[in-house]
Deep mutational scan, measured.
Amino acid sequence: MQRVNMIMAESPGLITICLLGYLLSAECTVFLDHENANKILNRPKRYNSGKLEEFVQGNLERECMEEKCSFEEAREVFENTERTTEFWKQYVDGDQCESNPCLNGGSCKDDINSYECWCPFGFEGKNCELDVTCNIKNGRCEQFCKNSADNKVVCSCTEGYRLAENQKSCEPAVPFPCGRVSVSQTSKLTRAETVFPDVDYVNSTEAETILDNITQSTQSFNDFTRVVGGEDAKPGQFPWQVVLNGKVDAFCGGSIVNEKWIVTAAHCVETGVKITVVAGEHNIEETEHTEQKRNVIRIIPHHNYNAAINKYNHDIALLELDEPLVLNSYVTPICIADKEYTNIFLKFGSGYVSGWGRVFHKGRSALVLQYLRVPLVDRATCLRSTKFTIYNNMFCAGFHEGGRDSCQGDSGGPHVTEVEGTSFLTGIISWGEECAMKGKYGIYTKVSRYVNWIKEKTKLT
């Protein structure tokens, strides 16, 4: 034993070699072989497995989906700052455009905790909710729209109204504003409101030439003092309507412009014939205590009207009353817009006519005020429907199939267009061939041609 100890002390290297040989010859039971080890760690190889990531292109799944990435790591994937920024906006807080917040056709661009709407022409605001041009839906104005110097929408209202708090709607500024039905039992019968379409306001006024200088022999019209197929109006439903009495009662109609003036057809009036105007009328054979009678003290036909040349060209006249009318729910003026808007309103496509005229061709006159909704007829169809001249200051309205029309005794009465609950004068009943005849239409004086003249002559002093 002493000898062994001496050998170990003198030859430590020998001992180490012996131990190493023993270990190498022993069977290893701690580690699995290569094949079995792979069965336990069965993990798919990654895209760049075996390579240094710093030297390969980034992978979106590896960089940002398996674990949260930084902007720089995302930049490695896209290799483009702009594309990385677009991805980053949604990656950080989701897609803010998912709810489609942009209105009126706006395009949404996502941002971090926010979004941006790219608005089409005519709109602005956070969600493109603000109209900035009158060309689109009248700028959301209830009545009139004008573009300011910086191309912003400025709404306005006709006389007797003021802008509401929203700067879009119009509200009454006087007790009985024009064009409004205020009798409670008839307010439910107000005709369907007309909503502004998209309009090209630059070209809204037709490029028409008034044929002022045409000389033409007097034409022989049949029954051209021209509501057939209409309905009984309720008291106060058309408070701007008046009836004219002269040699015979209810020979023509008219509309209240203001307390002192009536507008009617020029062919209705004769110099030297006494005319009485009755406002607030409903049943011409009954006294309903809503009527107001006034005498006409002055007749002003349009300066281009000449019955000797043509009885229905420039067929418009103004009547001055001896005493002002007292405005109330049964006696209310009709609204008159400017030339541009009167023309736009007419193009809405349908209007209402009213009167006490004959209820059928050569038949009896109506006792109760009649009204009828009539569609506008395109000019080409209008011209083809008659052998008589249709001037540019006239328009056609009615039904091709016949059966409904204005008729004798309705002449001078109103053709009105309702705009968001307020009625505007767009025409004056003038003439036609018979009444409600198939293929024939009622012919009306186009008020847009005469609004400046009306307003100039009827100013209240």
Rank of each mutant, 00 (worst) to 15 (best):
Q2H: 08
N5R: 09
I7H: 14
M8Q: 11
E10D: 11
P12R: 09
G13A: 10
I15Y: 06
I17L: 12
L19H: 03
L20I: 07
G21E: 04
Y22Q: 08
L23R: 02
S25W: 13
S25Y: 14
E27N: 07
K68A: 08
S70W: 05
F71C: 04
F71K: 13
E72T: 11
E72S: 15
T81L: 05
T84N: 10
F87A: 15
W88K: 15
D93R: 06
D95E: 04
C97T: 01
P101G: 02
C102L: 00
D110N: 09
D110I: 04
K126A: 14
E129S: 02
L130Y: 10
L130P: 03
F144M: 04
K146C: 05
A149C: 06
S156C: 04
S156L: 06
G160W: 02
G160M: 02
K168A: 08
A173H: 09
P175Y: 05
S182L: 05
S184V: 11
Q185M: 08
T190A: 09
P197R: 09
P197F: 11
D198N: 12
V199H: 11
N203E: 10
I210Y: 05
N213V: 09
G229I: 10
G230Y: 11
E231R: 12
K234L: 09
G236R: 06
W240K: 01
W240A: 01
Q241W: 05
Q241Y: 10
Q241E: 03
K247D: 13
C252R: 01
G253M: 14
G254W: 00
V257Q: 00
E259P: 09
E259Y: 04
T264L: 02
H267L: 02
E270W: 07
E270P: 13
V273G: 09
I275K: 01
I275F: 10
E281I: 13
I284F: 12
E285F: 11
E286Y: 09
T287H: 06
T290I: 06
R298I: 01
N304M: 12
N304E: 11
N306I: 05
L319Y: 02
P324G: 05
V326T: 09
Y330R: 12
I334W: 01
I334P: 01
K339P: 15
K339I: 07
Y341K: 05
T342D: 03
N343P: 02
N343S: 11
L346P: 02
F348D: 08
S350R: 14
G351Q: 03
Y352T: 07
V353Y: 04
S354L: 13
S354N: 10
G357V: 14
G363C: 04
L367Y: 10
L367I: 10
L369E: 06
V374I: 09
R379V: 11
A380H: 07
R384L: 09
I390Q: 09
N393L: 02
F399M: 07
E401M: 12
D410Y: 07
V416I: 09
V416Y: 10
V416E: 02
T417V: 11
T417F: 02
E420Y: 14
S423G: 13
I429A: 14
I429T: 15
E434F: 13
K438Q: 15
G439Y: 06
R449L: 10
W453H: 01
K455W: 05
T458E: 01
T461C: 10
